[in-house]
Write a protein that binds this DNA or RNA. Sequence first.
DNA 1: CGTTATCTTGACGACTATCAACAGTCGTGG
DNA 2: CCACGACTGTTGATAGTCGTCAAGATAACG
Lengths: 289, 289
Amino acid sequence: MANHAKLQIFSTETAKPLTYFVSRDGGSGEVSPTTRNADNTLQNPLILRLSHPVDLSSDDRAVLQAITSDTREVPRRTDIIHEGDRPDCVRVVMEGIACRYKLLRDGSRQITAFLVPGDLCNPHITRLQEMDHGIASVSPCMIVEIPPSTITKLASRHPRVIDGLVWASLADESVMREWIVGLGRRMADRNMAHLICELYTRLEAVGLVEDRSFHMPITQNELSDALGITTVHTNRTMADLRDRGLIAFEGRWLRVLDLAGLRDLGQFNPQYLHLRRQRSGSDLENGEV
Amino acid sequence: MANHAKLQIFSTETAKPLTYFVSRDGGSGEVSPTTRNADNTLQNPLILRLSHPVDLSSDDRAVLQAITSDTREVPRRTDIIHEGDRPDCVRVVMEGIACRYKLLRDGSRQITAFLVPGDLCNPHITRLQEMDHGIASVSPCMIVEIPPSTITKLASRHPRVIDGLVWASLADESVMREWIVGLGRRMADRNMAHLICELYTRLEAVGLVEDRSFHMPITQNELSDALGITTVHTNRTMADLRDRGLIAFEGRWLRVLDLAGLRDLGQFNPQYLHLRRQRSGSDLENGEV
DNA sequence: CGTTATCTTGACGACTATCAACAGTCGTGG
DNA sequence: CCACGACTGTTGATAGTCGTCAAGATAACG
């Protein structure tokens, strides 16, 4: 916990060729991490994400599709937003996995959140303030940058989209609280089970779980920095989950063999993710949220 | 970390007479925890809090003073908002200390945040959704309840107040991230030092630190549930901080004897609290944020 | 003045860290 | 095509932080 000597600083220097979309890991090898519609067009993860909390009109969807069409590649392990930056655009992860992180003076790192497709890096559109943490890609990512002016237009013409964004922001906060609970009160195996359940559920919500397995580019080293343990302990804990028959790895794909068992171990209740819209009786009567 | 058998469930049954304002702890005994102006009128912590990020006009202040005048007493250790509630008002802590918490199935509890005067319990005014965690008083508290209609009016007539509330919400998020870092990567003594620095700085921002000491109603049991350790370890760690000459207790007041040393141990950098408005060169030129 | 909550201390054990070494995979370059 | 180096995953031995259990001391409260 104290001195993590070898630190892997994220650097834009370490750019590597983008091989992420080339299936190279046996198993579900042919499947691209990005979900496709029946007609083989790409599913838009932001639309999928926002469709859970709010009812998007076809117009809302069209606008979101247009806004997110201009994606930019970010190589693996590259800062998307540096700590101290004051970003002038709202950034959305469209493909790949990223993370929020903070570095400590002793060189250790703590990841405070994982970002999956459909997640916003800096959702606080009203105040583009200085970042108190960094955001970096874990796998190669596709991201879009939305200028504040576009958000302003959305606010007047597509209020439900804004509603969805606010809702997503609340969900992110809830996830942070759950991480606090996990780091404070769950043993390593339980917390790892919980984190896997979280990723599973969030990825499923944007159509990235197929046949109970999902692409898992997060290394044990990165997992350690998220779970607050060492890589050695991460390795042993993960071997434990495998030995118990809860999960299995097929190349870089993680398959959940026993979802009920994994949820039970992690005491995972998906409610905190706020994926579904809450409706009280009166809401249903009014028809409008 | 595993089985915390004895759990102290917050219950409204345990209501006790409000003796908080009766000074009963030697030392700075005569001082009420609430700061007073020179003319002995009460300082409004919400106004103090919001004054840091934004420039409030005297009109803004007057409105805030009016809105927060109707306070309600909450006894010690009483739920202010239950998990699962869908509160119909925004609640603000005006006096005392409260906490956000989650209970685990095994009976253990994790506190995810402390609320000090000027903090909002449920700042997400646009969406009054179901609470995914509980909020309870730690000490007796005075709180106000602001109906959504009032917030709506504020939005049109006092935009800077809303700006301040949003800013405060961002600061709360940042605090959560720092707790994740602390629970994941800081040893107990460092994390305790960090938490004390956090409370010190936040209380100072609303005028509740006098002569390097502040009212500390949080018990070691509650501290344990915040730091993710046992009460036994909390006790020993706290004794350690005392023995090192960093802090001292005078009744229920915590005096910081060596602020520099405490900050160094906890590697505390107050920047993440976003107490001060950030100004770039252009901001200063424009004069308007 | 007794009862309860809170704080304190000691002994022991469990979980996790640290240190070290090695195996497997992958991309690169000869 | 193979060798090399870098990264990632794996395993063993040992040490340290922290948890558990138990008991007592102190202080608050009716």
